[in-house]
């Protein structure tokens, strides 16, 4: 557990966050149409952006930014507690949907088939393996650094996607999930399960947009997204070790060998 000693005394930080919460919640949800789809903007998205901007103002000093990090963990515990008490009563439905929940975890591997060819096409070398073998959250970064080293091309690749996800992941997921769920024929519950990719903030942003777009499914969306996220958190690393990484390396070899042949 991270050290949170004395952090409650940083009143400067808490007061600023209080102001951010008041402003963003008063603005409230905002939806707009893009073609046939709907993009949902939620207070949490404004909150991240305002937070990042505040970092560059004198209001936030380096100390506050350092203090904020361990507090996220405590906040996430309350989020998970809330998700837990939504999952509990929905347990019969979740058990009924168990096969879909388990199998959609393999959908995380789709990123390899989807993103690896693009990375290689853009001219990236072994960085591509680190970048596309998984969604690059903490356990995956650990795996790659452990196997290839921090300063290897693979290590740099996984760190790059990790940084992207940290800064932009929740914003990105919040923007695309409501939009995709409104323009594709797929059911909101399928997207709810897909929201659980193993990062609490990305899951919250993705499922939050779904809830705003489909309020009638609120409870089911939270329960399925939360259950899927817990599954991803507990299986994600093993998925990478046993399937994701070997598959990425194999596919990398196949694609680059073919390109070399064509060039020769």
């Amino acid at each position: 557990m991270v050290d949170v000693k004395g952090l409650w005394k940083d009143w400067r930080l808490h007061t600023i966050v209080l102001a951010v919460v008041v402003i963003t919640e008063l603005i409230g949800n905002y939806e707009f149409a893009v073609g046939p789809g709907v993009v949902v903007l939620l207070p949490m998205l404004y909150a991240i952006i305002i937070g990042i901007i505040l970092y560059f103002t004198p209001a936030i000093k380096e100390k506050q930014a350092k203090h904020a990090e361990p507090l996220i963990v405590l906040g996430v515990l309350l989020l998970i507690a809330k998700i837990g008490v939504v999952i509990g009563p929905s347990l019969p439905q979740i058990i009924a949907a168990g096969p879909a929940l388990l199998l959609q975890e393999f959908g995380n591997l789709a990123t390899i088939l989807f993103a690896l060819p693009i990375a290689i096409y853009l001219g990236l070398k072994r960085e591509a393996i680190g970048m596309t073998h998984s969604v690059a959250r903490e356990p995956n970064v650990g795996l790659i650094v452990d196997k290839f080293g921090f300063n290897s091309p693979e290590g740099r690749g996984v760190m790059a996607v990790y940084i992207f996800g940290t800064v932009f992941g929740a914003i990105f997921m919040g923007l695309i999930s409501g939009f995709l769920a409104t323009i594709t024929p797929l059911h909101p519950l399928s997207f709810a399960m897909a929201s659980g990719i193993g990062s609490s903030s990305m899951m919250a942003a993705a499922s939050g947009s779904l809830i705003a777009a489909f309020p009638n499914f609120e409870t089911d969306i939270i329960a399925f997204a939360g259950a899927s996220n817990l599954l991803s958190l507990s299986t994600g690393l093993y998925m990478s070790i046993f399937i994701g990484l070997p598959l990425t390396e194999k596919l990398y070899q196949i694609i680059t060998r073919r390109r070399h042949k064509e060039e020769a």
Binding site: Q64, A68, A204, A205
Partner: peptide, 23 residues
Amino acid sequence: LLATTTPILAYAGISIGRSWADF
């Protein structure tokens, strides 16, 4: 649920500022 996420992401945004240079 969405009321619990706003303060979390406000703290997150402030702490993300530190990763901005890398980003």
